[in-house]
Design a protein around this nucleic acid. Structure first.
Lengths: 166, 166
DNA sequence: GTGTACTTTCACAACTTCTTGAAAGTTTCA
DNA sequence: TGAAACTTTCAAGAAGTTGTGAAAGTACAC
């Protein structure tokens, strides 16, 4: 297979995957393009390669930087900004988990805490409280596990991972 | 807090969370409604409570059944179908993981395998192969870990979980 | 067989999210 | 200061997703 064909397929696959991970298609494609590239690329390079507008490129590059999946690089003597992707997959996954935990799990736990205040002795109220209690327990555990995962380094992760799949 | 208010808040929160988990808003809301309810509900009950159309209710109930998050229940003497939610959170999470692994991780791994065929000795080809190799390694590990997770039962999970957060 | 009580399908409508491109903003340097 | 080289913003349109409701399909009871 030719490099160009491989790149294209990879960008497509990564785009598809990304969209089910809270990363939109273009955002994931930019990330893929940068992952594949041995040098830092400028916004213009990205626009050209992916056939997207300046605004779109800019917005998604910013988002990727927010998620810490892409870093800005300044080349001496150049006024343009260049970008490189985070290539350490452990780091990539860790950043995505951190971002999603913040946006999804934490608000959920906050909501659940409020819901503990429901009172009542009828069957429905009891069923409600029971479910809320269970979910809260589960979410809190998940939250701690993920927090630890995020704070830990790659070697710990690989270790635990290997233990899990042993 | 009143039960009704709590229910409403929960349905809203679950709907929001669901949409970032590959479960659309209505689908998650139906699941939430069923989770909260001590008895099985019919399609009509769901339509009324959530103010949604018959078609919408039907489609999303089927999808929930596909994901094994909701089960069909037949009441003796009733012609209607009734539905209950899977209330064991471990089971819920396990089913969601299984479904997403099938739809996301497995196609990715298939795509990556094809991409190993890229040849070339220039810097870009090498960078490409390197990235593909890394991601493949990572994805394969993740796949095994999740496979084990899916096949295992709640006690193993809780055990590993507790070890992870200790 | 036929009526009744449901469930499923589907074309179109409503809504949401993404993309564009041009205008405005910022930085740098002579 | 001002003009060139970039980056950011934003309103409008395109694309994609979800929801509707009526019509078609199915199954059971008589």
């Amino acid at each position: 297979m030719e490099l160009a064909e491989g790149k294209e397929k990879f960008i497509h696959a990564w785009g598809t995957l990304g969209s089910s991970w809270g990363i939109n298609r273009t955002m994931a494609q930019i990330h893929a393009l940068l992952l594949m590239s041995s040098q830092a690329l400028s916004a213009d390079d990205i626009m050209t390669e992916l056939n997207i507008s300046r605004g779109n490129a800019n917005m998604n590059i910013r988002a990727l930087i927010d998620w810490r999946l892409v870093h800005k690089v300044l080349k001496p003597g150049e006024r343009k900004e260049f970008f490189v992707a985070e290539k350490d997959m452990w780091e990539v996954v860790r950043n995505i988990i951190a971002e999603r935990k913040k946006k999804e799990l934490e608000p959920m736990i906050r909501a659940l805490n409020e819901l503990s205040a429901v009172e009542g002795t009828d069957e429905d109220s009891r069923a409600f409280s029971e479910v809320v209690k269970d979910i809260k327990l589960f979410s809190t555990k998940a939250d701690s596990a993920l927090e630890r995962l995020i704070r830990s380094d790659s070697s710990w992760f690989v270790g635990t991972f290997l233990k899990m799949i042993k």
